[in-house]
Simulated assay, not measured.
Amino acid sequence: MDILPLCKMAATLCGKFLLRQGWLPLAHCVRHGSKAVTRHRKPMHFLKQKIMAVTEYIPPKPLPSQRRVAPRVKPNLEENGLFVLLKKEVAAMFQECKMITVVHNSAMTAEDMLLLRHRLRKHGLTIRFFPNVVMRAYLAGSQYSNLEPLFIGQTVLIVSKEPKVKEMLQTLRSTPQMVLMGARIENALLSQQGLLSYSKLPSLATVQGQVVSGLTLQTSQTAAMLQRHPAQLSALLQQYLKQKAEEAAPGATEGGPKAEATAAV
């Protein structure tokens, strides 16, 4: 017996009677059909893959532009009179000054530079300006050639006849535009960290005082050790003579009366 017509008839009757009363059916018969999936791609055959790989288009590499600008060649600088004069001034500065510091100027205004000069001059420090070409030309043939890479861009030299690293660092602490690069102090090349370590060392007068006090203490100890044995020897000899004199004195006093009594008998 087919059930589908009975279900349809029951649904029709329920729909007529229930709709009149304002009710809805408790269940509906819904038929779900299968969905056809037709978008699955089939894998390409390996022979076709090989043919596609062999026949793949490879675009040619673009040719270099014919209008490319040639690199600029720096002209050879001729040593004119001003160049030679500046080079002599640099040589004289390296001979007279014991401290030469290379500082990078990072967009410092003229007013700030004037104030910095005034502060440095209080400690006996001077700011010097030389072209980088002149400095590199001098350093290339000198024993300080390792300073040559520091002269790039706007550079300033802070020089003094005596090494005053501590005063210079205290002055540059208030000007962040001046970046310390390196220095030459008494024929020794120092980096930024080396300058910081050098500033923590005691002054020359303090070191000389420590050396003199140490030498004085050593000489006094040596003199005391040399005088100790003769003094001890003389003290022992004096004690020995004193003991001998004390031993001889009672015998002499006792022997005198005995000798007189014997002579009288």
Rank of each mutant, 00 (worst) to 15 (best):
D2N: 03
I3K: 05
P5M: 00
C7S: 11
M9W: 02
A10D: 02
T12P: 00
C14G: 05
G15Q: 13
K16T: 08
L18F: 05
L19S: 15
L19K: 15
L19I: 10
L19M: 10
Q21D: 12
W23M: 10
W23Y: 10
H28K: 08
C29M: 09
C29Q: 08
R31H: 14
H32A: 14
V37I: 15
V37N: 12
R41S: 09
P43N: 01
P43R: 01
T55K: 15
E56I: 08
P60C: 07
P60W: 04
S65T: 09
R68A: 13
V73I: 14
P75W: 04
N76S: 14
L77P: 02
E79W: 14
E79P: 03
N80R: 13
N80D: 15
V84N: 11
V84H: 10
L86E: 02
K87P: 04
K87D: 03
K88W: 03
A91M: 09
M93T: 07
F94W: 02
Q95A: 10
E96A: 06
E96R: 10
C97D: 00
K98H: 07
M99N: 00
I100Y: 01
I100D: 01
V102E: 05
V103I: 13
N105L: 02
S106W: 08
T109W: 03
A110C: 08
D112K: 03
L114N: 12
L115M: 11
L116Q: 00
R119S: 14
R121D: 05
K122Y: 05
H123P: 03
H123M: 06
L125A: 00
T126A: 15
R128V: 10
F129M: 15
N132M: 07
V134F: 01
V134D: 00
M135Q: 01
A137D: 08
A140T: 06
G141A: 13
Q143T: 06
N146T: 14
L147M: 08
P149W: 01
G153H: 06
Q154A: 15
V156G: 00
V156M: 04
V159C: 13
K161N: 11
E162N: 12
P163E: 02
P163V: 03
E167C: 07
M168Y: 02
T175E: 14
T175H: 11
T175N: 09
A183N: 00
R184L: 07
N187G: 04
L189R: 02
L189M: 07
G194K: 00
S197M: 14
Y198N: 07
Y198W: 07
Y198F: 14
K200W: 06
L204R: 08
A205F: 03
V207A: 06
G209K: 09
Q210C: 07
V211P: 02
L217R: 15
S220A: 14
A223L: 13
A224Y: 11
M225P: 05
M225T: 15
M225L: 15
L226V: 05
Q227T: 09
R228Y: 13
P230D: 01
P230L: 02
A231K: 11
A231N: 06
L233V: 07
L233M: 11
A235F: 04
L237C: 07
L237M: 06
Y240E: 10
A245H: 10
E246L: 12
E247S: 12
E254G: 12
G256H: 12
G256R: 14
P257A: 09
K258E: 13
A259W: 06
T262C: 12
A263I: 04
